[in-house]
Design a protein around this nucleic acid. Structure first.
Length: 372
DNA sequence: CGGTAACCTGGGAT
DNA sequence: AATCCCAGGTTAC
C-alpha cells in the first residue's frame, strides 16, 4: 500500500534540451545555460536599476495583487518586493511605503538595453494598466457600501493580464487544492522552462512552451505529486497541440470571443470546469465580468447577494447563478469586484481588516474595549 | 439532463 | 492513532 512519494524532485532534463524554436528567444545562441551566475553573481544582485512606474497604491498595491491567488509564479523576494517573469523578462517590483505618489518601482534583471522599451510595454500590459482600478472601484463603491468599506483598507488589489497558457496550466493545478501545493506544482512546471536568473536566492524561469510541456509524461507529473491533475495537464496539452494554428494561437483567439463562448471553449479542455475556466477568462483573456465561483465566493453570495440560497450546496448550476448575480450587481467588471471580495475573505486579510476597523473605531471611541 | 461519489495529496481538527 | 474534513473542482456514473 505504501507508495513512495518523492516531494517534487527537479524535472528530469534527460530529454534533449529544448532548442530555441521561437523567434522571440533573443538569446538563441548555442549554449542553453545563458546566465552563468557563479562567475559574477553580484552583477545581477547589486546594481538593479530601479525606475518609477508613477502609480500610487490605489492603482496597484503589490501585497494584494501578487500573493492572493491569481498567479502562483511571482515570489516575494523582500518584504515589499515581488519578482517574476513576463515573457522572457525577469522583473522585480517594489512598493515604497512612505511616499504616496510614484511609490512603485520596477527593475529588469536580465533585459538587454535594446529591449528595455519592449520589456516595459510587456510589464504594463501584464499589469493590465489599460484599466484604471480606482475608476472601476469608484463605480462599485457607489452601488455597494460594503464594497466601499472593504475598498478603503484593501485598495490596490488589481487583476493582472497574464499569458493564457501560463494561466491555464496554473489553474488546472489549482483545482480542489491548497495554495502551498499549487505553488509547488507550478514551480515544478516552471522549472521546465528556460532559466532566466536568480533573485534573493530564488531561481526564476520562463514559462515552458507548449512544445516543452508536451514532452512531460503523466507518470512524471504523478511522481512529482500532481495526483489526478497529471492527466489533466497532459490531456490539455495534447488537445491544444491538435488545434489548427497551434494551441497558443487558439487560446489567444478566445480574447476576442464573448464570455460564454470563451468559457464553453475552455471547458472542452480536460481538467477545466466552470471555476477554472472563469479564472482563466478573468486573469488572462480580458473577460472582466467572468466570476470564478468557489467556496469563498459562495459564502459571500449567500450572505449578501442571494441569502435565500444559504445552506444549499454549491452545484454547477448554482455556480452560474452566483456569477449572474455578481454581474447583475457589479456590471461589466464584476470579476474585478469578485477579486476584492474574495481577498477580503482570506484569513490573512481578515485579520488586517479587523485591525483596521478596530483602529479607526478606537480613534473615535477611545474607551471602547473590544471583547470577543 | 441534474445530482453524487470518487479522485491525489497533505495539513489540521476531532 | 485513526478518521474526517477541507483546500479557490472536475469528471464519470
Amino acid at each position: 500500500m505504501k507508495r513512495h512519494r518523492p516531494i517534487l524532485p527537479p524535472p528530469s532534463l534527460t530529454t534533449a534540451t529544448p532548442k530555441p524554436t521561437t523567434v522571440s528567444s533573443y538569446y538563441s545562441s548555442k549554449k542553453p545555460k545563458r546566465l552563468d551566475l557563479s562567475k559574477n553573481p553580484k552583477k545581477i544582485h547589486q546594481n538593479p536599476n530601479w525606475v518609477s512606474l508613477n502609480l500610487n497604491k490605489s492603482e496597484l498595491f503589490l501585497p494584494l495583487t501578487f500573493p492572493t491567488g491569481q498567479t502562483f509564479r511571482w515570489k516575494q523576494t523582500t518584504p515589499f518586493q515581488f519578482t517574476g517573469v513576463v515573457g522572457s523578462h525577469l522583473i522585480s517590483l517594489k512598493q515604497l511605503q512612505d511616499s504616496d505618489q510614484s511609490n512603485i518601482l520596477y527593475c529588469f534583471h536580465n533585459t538587454l538595453d535594446s529591449d528595455q522599451a519592449a520589456a516595459k510595454a510587456a510589464l504594463l500590459d501584464f499589469l493590465n494598466m489599460g484599466i484604471c482600478l480606482s475608476d472601476v472601484w469608484d463605480e462599485f463603491s457607489k452601488s455597494d457600501s460594503r464594497f466601499a468599506e472593504l475598498a478603503v483598507c484593501l485598495s490596490g488589489a488589481r487583476v493582472l493580464r497574464q499569458d493564457p497558457l501560463e494561466c491555464l496550466i496554473q489553474f488546472i493545478c489549482s483545482s480542489n487544492n491548497n495554495i502551498k501545493r499549487i505553488t509547488q506544482m507550478v514551480d515544478f512546471v516552471s522549472r521546465l522552462g528556460n532559466h532566466v536568473g536568480v533573485v534573493e536566492g530564488i531561481d526564476f524561469y520562463e514559462f515552458p512552451s507548449l512544445d516543452r510541456l508536451s514532452k512531460v509524461s503523466e507518470d512524471e507529473l504523478r511522481k512529482a505529486g500532481f495526483g489526478y491533475r497529471a492527466n489533466y495537464i497532459t490531456g490539455t496539452v495534447k488537445v491544444l497541440q491538435s488545434k489548427p494554428g497551434g494551441g497558443v494561437e487558439w487560446l489567444a483567439s478566445l480574447r476576442k470571443l464573448d464570455l460564454r463562448s470563451a468559457i464553453e471553449a475552455l471547458t472542452t479542455l480536460p481538467g477545466v470546469g466552470p471555476k477554472v475556466a472563469a479564472c482563466i477568462a478573468l486573469f488572462s483573456l480580458d473577460q472582466h465580468h467572468a466570476v470564478p465561483v468557489d467556496t469563498h465566493v459562495w459564502k459571500i453570495a449567500t450572505r449578501y447577494l442571494i441569502p435565500e440560497l444559504a445552506g444549499a450546496r454549491l452545484t454547477p448550476k448554482l455556480c452560474s447563478r452566483v456569477a449572474d448575480a455578481f454581474v447583475e450587481k457589479y456590471g461589466k467588471y464584476a470579476g474585478w469586484a469578485q477579486t476584492l471580495l474574495f481577498i477580503a475573505e482570506l484569513p490573512s486579510q481578515k485579520a488586517l481588516i479587523q485591525s483596521f476597523n478596530n483602529n479607526t473605531e478606537e480613534a473615535k471611541n477611545e474607551d471602547i474595549k473590544m471583547d470577543i
